[in-house]
């Protein structure tokens, strides 16, 4: 029996409530509020209480997908990354870096946003970076 309680932060809105993930034998089984957290002081809303449910959803993507002739096929990471890299490279060569846009996400971490915009600016070479702060 392995049972862990991992402190984390709710990813459902900008409030940033402290949550505790309940992990049993490597599976996320529930969410509790962090009772001593400065933001939420032990409370959560209906979304926060059910934070683990979307993580465990059977609808989650479990593999990268590549569309061939209008249908998705499961691919390995190496294949999928290569397909994407080839497309970006050829489009940048043909139309220039400003023909590519990158939408970063208000739902991923700071580190990932940092890398995503770094990817756009340093790898592609464009400032066409935006996210849904307006929405």
């Amino acid at each position: 029996m392995e049972y862990k309680i991992i402190p984390s932060v709710c990813s459902y809105c900008g409030t940033g409530c402290g949550v505790l993930f309940k992990v049993m034998n490597g599976r996320l089984v529930g969410t509790l509020p962090n009772k001593t957290h400065p933001v939420n002081e032990g409370g959560l809303c209906i979304k926060g209480w059910n934070l683990h449910e979307y993580v465990n959803s059977f609808l989650r993507l479990t593999s990268p997908l590549v569309k061939v002739k209008g249908r998705f096929h499961k691919a390995t990471w190496d294949e999928a990354i290569q397909v994407a890299a080839d497309h970006f490279t050829s489009i940048v060569e043909k139309y220039g870096p400003d023909s590519v846009g990158v939408l970063v996400s208000a739902k991923m971490t700071n580190e990932e946003n940092f890398l995503a915009q770094k990817f756009a600016r340093a790898v592609i070479g464009t400032n066409n970076v935006d996210h849904c702060a307006r929405l």
Binding site: S8, S11, T62
Partner: peptide, 28 residues
């Protein structure tokens, strides 16, 4: 092409909430 990403419970990192508070998330 669709890349399958991991959720908040499956990685480390930080979020910055509405009051500019930078908070750590932990891989569970």
């Amino acid at each position: 092409v669709v890349f399958a990403a991991s959720s908040v419970a499956e990685k480390d990192g930080t979020f910055t909430n509405t009051e500019r508070r930078c908070l750590r998330i932990n891989k569970a």
